[in-house]
Design a protein around this nucleic acid. Structure first.
Length: 114
DNA sequence: CTTGGGCGGTAAA
DNA sequence: TTTACCGCCCAAG
């Protein structure tokens, strides 16, 4: 059994999750991102000890089975652009989610740092 | 801005 | 066991 925490500090136990070890490591790492924060795919890769696996991390995000729990929208590209979003609404939805968490973007969908 | 090479995990063939 | 596919990254031009 894996234990995930989201940004609101709810602990959520998930049994019989369907996915590979790699995917679970990625997902649990994503759950650590707090509201208003973002990490890059590369950051996640580094945090799980596989700095060269940024692309694979993106794959795992896309297969996230718990869209409502795991904040995969808080993962963006290392150049500050949004990247993709496989949930309903696509990147536009991703952008709105992040804006509602207090982040801002320029017209190139690029994150504006404070 | 574009391109081209490199990359790793996964599902399907 | 290969292949094809990607929500990526980086260096050059």
């Amino acid at each position: 059994m894996e234990v995930f925490k989201n940004g609101k500090n709810f602990a959520i136990a998930i049994r019989n999750v369907k996915g590979t070890d790699f995917q679970k490591r990625v997902w649990s790492e994503i759950c650590k991102i707090e509201i208003g924060n973002v990490l890059t795919y590369q950051d996640i890769a580094r945090n799980i000890g596989q700095p060269k696996s940024a692309r694979a991390v993106a794959n795992a995000c896309g297969k996230n089975p718990y869209l409502e729990i795991i904040p995969c929208h808080r993962v963006i590209r290392s150049d500050g652009k949004l990247g993709g979003y496989s949930g309903k609404g696509g990147v536009e939805r991703k952008k709105e989610l992040l804006k509602s968490e207090g982040l801002k973007f320029n017209n190139d969908l690029k994150l504006i740092l404070n």
